[in-house]
C-alpha cells in the first residue's frame, strides 16, 4: 500500500497577516511557515495505517514554491518514507489537484490522505478535485480510519454537525480527508529529523507532469476583515443606563 499524503505549507496560525499592495495575495516576507495542521493529522494517520498494515510506504507530496520543501522535510522527520515536490507556485486548486493526480498515477499511489482543508485559504477542494480526476471515491471530515487487514477495504467514521457520527465503507484506491481530533500528531523526533535528510525528495516541474501553467482559477482582491470598533461605555444613573443598554441591544445590535 503506497499511501500518499497531500500536504500544504501555510503561514503559522499566529502570523500577523498583511495584504500585498495590489491585493493579489498576502505579504510573505516575514511569514513563518508550517505544515497545515489538518495535514499533520493526515501524516499521523498515514504512519499509523502503515504500522497497522505492517507494509507499504508513506509519501508526502506538496505542490508549491521552493520553500515548500521544508513542509516535506517535516513530514519525512515525522516518519514518512519519501517525498514528492511539484515545484509550482500556483493558487489554482484545479492545477494543484491535476498535479497531485499525475504524481499519484506516476508513483503508483494506492490511497490519498489529506487534511479536510488548508488553514490559509480554507477552500477544502483539492482532495475532491483529485478524487474526481482519478475517478476514485472520496470523503472528508473523517474522524476515524479503519483498514481491513487486507488493506483493500476501509471504513471511515465521519462527524456530522459536531457530535453526530456515521460510517462509510469504501475500497482502495480512495481519497480520505481528515478532520481535527482524529489523532494527536507525533512530534518529529531528533532521530527523525536526522534521518529525514537522508531521505529523497523527488522534484517535478509542471511540464514533467504534462501540465501547463494556465490557471483555471485566479485569486484577487484580498481584504483584511474590518477592524473591530471600540466598545461603548454607558454613563449616568443605573436605571437610565439599563434603559439605554436595552435600547441599543434592540435597535443597534439587534440581539433582543
Amino acid at each position: 500500500m503506497n499511501i500518499f499524503v497531500c500536504i500544504k505549507q501555510v503561514p503559522d496560525t499566529e502570523t500577523k497577516i498583511r495584504i500585498k499592495g495590489d491585493k493579489s495575495g498576502i505579504e510573505t516576507n516575514d511569514v513563518k511557515w508550517i505544515v497545515s495542521p489538518y495535514d499533520e493529522f493526515a501524516i499521523e494517520e498515514a504512519l499509523r495505517a502503515k504500522a497497522f498494515l505492517k507494509t507499504g510506504t508513506v509519501t508526502v507530496v506538496t505542490v508549491g514554491p521552493d520553500r515548500a520543501v521544508e513542509a516535506l522535510r517535516t513530514g519525512l522527520a515525522m516518519g514518512a518514507d519519501t517525498a514528492v515536490h511539484v515545484r509550482w507556485e500556483t493558487s489554482c486548486n484545479v492545477s494543484i489537484a491535476k498535479a497531485v493526480a499525475e504524481v499519484v498515477k506516476k508513483e503508483n499511489g494506492s490511497v490519498i490522505f489529506s487534511g479536510k482543508q488548508a488553514i490559509d485559504d480554507d477552500q477544502g477542494v483539492v482532495f475532491a478535485y483529485t478524487a474526481e480526476l482519478l475517478n476514485w471515491p472520496s470523503t472528508s471530515t473523517v474522524s476515524k480510519v479503519e483498514f481491513g487487514t487486507d488493506g483493500k477495504s476501509v471504513t471511515v467514521e465521519k462527524e456530522v454537525d459536531g457530535s453526530a457520527r456515521h460510517k462509510i465503507a469504501m475500497n482502495t484506491p480512495c481519497v480520505i480527508a481528515m478532520t481535527k481530533g482524529i489523532n494527536a500528531p507525533r512530534y518529529a523526533s531528533l532521530p527523525g529529523i536526522m534521518a529525514a535528510k537522508k531521505k529523497t525528495v523527488k522534484v517535478y516541474s509542471p511540464s514533467d507532469l504534462g501540465l501547463s501553467d494556465s490557471p483555471l482559477l485566479k485569486d484577487f482582491d484580498y481584504e483584511l476583515p474590518p477592524e473591530r470598533k471600540a466598545g461603548i461605555k454607558l454613563s449616568g444613573e443605573i436605571p437610565a443606563q439599563v434603559a439605554e443598554l436595552v435600547k441599543r441591544l434592540r435597535e443597534e445590535a439587534k440581539v433582543i
Binding site: 522535510r73 517535516t74 512530534y187 518529529a188 523526533s189 529529523i193 536526522m194 535528510k197
Partner: peptide, 15 residues
C-alpha cells in the same frame, strides 16, 4: 544547520 533549527522548533512545540 537546518537540523539544529528543526530541533529547536520541535522542542519549542513540545514545551
Amino acid at each position: 544547520t537546518d537540523d539544529q533549527l528543526a530541533l529547536a522548533e520541535m522542542v519549542r512545540k513540545f514545551v
